[in-house]
Design a protein around this nucleic acid. Sequence first.
DNA 1: GACAAGAACGAACGGTCGTACTATTCAGAC
DNA 2: GTCTGAATAGTACGACCGTTCGTTCTTGTC
Lengths: 197, 197
Amino acid sequence: MRKGEQTRGAILERALSLASQLGLEGLSIGRLAGDLDLSKSGLFAHFDSKERLQVQTLEHAAERFTEVVVRPALAAPRGEPRVRALFERWLRWPRVVPQAGGCIFVAAAVELDDRPGAARDRLVQLQRTWRETIAATVRSAKAEHHFQESVDPEQFAFEIQGIMLAYHQAARLLRDAGAGARARQAFERLLAAARRR
Amino acid sequence: MRKGEQTRGAILERALSLASQLGLEGLSIGRLAGDLDLSKSGLFAHFDSKERLQVQTLEHAAERFTEVVVRPALAAPRGEPRVRALFERWLRWPRVVPQAGGCIFVAAAVELDDRPGAARDRLVQLQRTWRETIAATVRSAKAEHHFQESVDPEQFAFEIQGIMLAYHQAARLLRDAGAGARARQAFERLLAAARRR
DNA sequence: GACAAGAACGAACGGTCGTACTATTCAGAC
DNA sequence: GTCTGAATAGTACGACCGTTCGTTCTTGTC
């Protein structure tokens, strides 16, 4: 049947935004049901447990992330342009896929880093995949001779991630209007160091 | 009287570690009281409200941070050594001042970035002070001619913060044993770019 | 040792949480 | 139109939440 799938999708889309604000633990089934005009028990039946809801919310986020960040970026030309595309699309994605509290992966990373369980396990997988996506893109930039042979793709991924996290904090906590400019400047410096010679 | 102060200190020290794990919202008065063999109401009386407990926990964290990170770093020679001291002491501080869940400011930044209130306001202040501390140290490194004149202290602070956040995520979420090495390499690259000529 | 103030306690409050059951409504195949 | 299973609603539960209140123990001062 199809109605269930549809409701489920609506729940997860809302859960994604709510969890970005309140965290995966702060995400409450009652609140979620109220927002969607569903009964608590009706909503609950879709997931059987809160932990499963949390995991599915991450799963849903990952699917949307692939749709709006990774896949389009892979359509950019190999090499540096693709690295840029990944970066720029990451900056925008919490608005493209509505997450009122900012990137859910940033929030979940801090929340789950010391809470064992299925949600943490899945998040770690996703985060590893993301770092590997960046690293692979950097490798292709080396293959295209855009970047020097000496560039370490994993180190590059680490540093990009740092810029993203600093941006997230400056923009959201400090409400620093110049956060985007700072992030781009840091990114350009990183690119220049990889490219230069 | 003095007994109260003493208990209060013990509560805050424990609250700091607990909040680093569960977040300032996840921090529960009942749990905290249980850990310290106090009654819920007895503990509560020290703070009058949960929000005040949260703010005081941040305040306590800030004092300890100044003690073990900022003040000792300011004892290092002006210029690049002082920048290094800030960085290295930051890396270690969640172990020096026990925070089982990692740096509480990192956790609180993500948690409070969209939750208005006294705790958020205080955290923003603290974070601004911290960035300014880094920037001032960078300015002194310029004055000592360790760094080029063209270095932007605020941009430098932004990028250091990024490295710290990336380290936190790699070490804690991904349990990446090489996180420290990655962070130091990124830091050296940042220093080299500021120094070079 | 009396006394007052401070510190801690125990019980209870109204709420919300996740979860378990049962009952009802509804969509799609025949 | 009927039947069936999926989808949703309703109700109740025990646990824990922050908070209040009145009481009791402890501490420091005279």
